[in-house]
Every structure is written in C-alpha cells, then in structure tokens.
C-alpha cells in the first residue's frame, strides 16, 4: 500500500507542488515561445511527455553501466535520438504544426527539465518509477503550456484551437482583440501571473 502511494505521489506531485515550470523554474525557454496558439502548445506538451517518459526509462535501464564521467554526453545522445524520432514523426504526420514549432522541437533536447529529471531521478531509480516520474513531470510542463496558451489565444485572437470563440456580437459592441497578448513578452507576464496565484495559495513556496 505504501509503495502504491509512493508511485502515485511520483506521478502527481509534479502537477502542482513540484511543478517543473513554475516551482523548479526549468524548461521555460520552450514554454514561452510556443504558447501564442493552443494547438502547437498541446503538440509540444505531448512531445515533451513522450520524450521525458522514454528517456527516463532508457537512462534508468542503463544507469548501472553508464560511466560517471561521461554521463552527460550519454544522456544528451539518448535524448537527442528520441527527439530526432519525434521531429521526424511530426514532419510526417503534422507538417503544419511542425513548421510552426520550427526549432523548438529540436530544443527539447536542451530542455532543462529533461536533464534535471535524468540526473535527479532516473540515475538512481528503477525503470517503472522513472517512467511515472517522466510522465508526471512532462504533464506538469504541458499543463502550464496549455494554461498560458489558452489565455493568450483567447485574449489575443479570440479563438481556441482555431475556432472563433468570442461571438461576433461582442466585436460589434466595440470589443477588440488584445494584440499585445500575441507578442512573446506577454508569455512571460502570463507565467508570472500563474506563479503569483500559485504562490499565494501555496504559502510555503514563497521566498
């Protein structure tokens, strides 16, 4: 029973309490650049979950054979291989989205969440908990991406996933889209607002 609880907490802690983006401040680079629209954000989230889960499992399986001094290069090569697979898959089946994400799929390799989890968790745990840890952290990252993208697309273009959400009558009454939300700096400020709310609720995280 205790063991089951442990794997549950490994899976669910990263969603809020240990969230990789807003608590550990890892992997922000890509989190900000792909969130102007919801669709690329979702694709990016799924890609990161997949890469994290499998790289965690592979590193965890190899953890006893990797020499300590070159472990970073080994980890980077494993991650780079997985990301190259994801990149090719996206180019084959979702070409438009892969064009929008441009270099940011490649930048999953240097996403600090990946290296952080590989170093901190997968190098010292068995494959199954590592898999759960990868899925949990990937999901924590994806959630933030989706929240930010939701607000930016809704307020910036009035659409969600490309469908018009804000009715035409609003525009007739004088409402207009906030063009500032599309610009990249607003992603930072949206994340800052999420951090603000999150830390007001979880007081123990405050500096």
């Amino acid at each position: 029973m205790a063991r089951k609880n442990k794997s549950l907490s490994v899976l669910f802690n990263p969603l809020s309490k240990d969230n990789p983006v807003i608590v550990q401040i890892l992997g922000i680079c890509s989190a900000l650049a792909v969130t102007a629209k919801l669709e690329p954000a979702i694709v990016m989230g799924i890609s990161v979950i997949a890469v994290m889960a499998f790289s965690n499992v592979i590193v965890s399986l190899m953890r006893n054979t990797i020499p300590n001094s070159i472990r970073i290069i080994v980890q980077l090569v494993i991650v780079a291989g997985l990301v190259a697979i994801v990149d090719q898959l996206l180019k084959a089946y979702a070409y438009d989205v892969s064009k929008q994400l441009s270099v940011f799929i490649g930048l999953i390799i240097t996403n600090c969440i990946l290296m952080g989890r590989l170093e901190a968790f997968a190098m010292s745990n068995k494959p199954w908990p590592s898999f759960l840890d990868g899925v949990g952290n990937g999901a924590g990252y994806a959630i933030i991406l989706i929240i930010v993208a939701f607000f930016r697309e809704l307020l910036g273009s009035g659409t969600l996933l490309g469908y018009q959400v804000i009715p035409q009558s609003f525009y007739d009454a004088g409402y207009s889209n906030n063009g500032l939300m599309i610009l990249p700096p607003m992603a930072l400020i949206t994340v800052a607002c999420i951090i603000w709310i999150h830390r007001s609720i979880n007081k123990d995280l405050q500096d």
């Binding site: 700096p185 992603a187 709310i197 830390r199």
Partner: peptide, 23 residues
C-alpha cells in the same frame, strides 16, 4: 514587492517588460 511575486515572479515580469522595450 508582494510576497508571492518575490524572486522569480518579478524577474519574469521585468524580463517581459524589457522584451516589450526591445521590440
């Protein structure tokens, strides 16, 4: 600064504002 914003929160906002300036 308001307590929950201290540290990284305010850093994000400043970076955002500087980003707007750089635009």
């Amino acid at each position: 600064i308001p307590k929950p914003l201290r540290g990284i929160g305010i850093t994000f906002i400043i970076t955002g504002l500087m980003g707007i300036a750089f635009m």
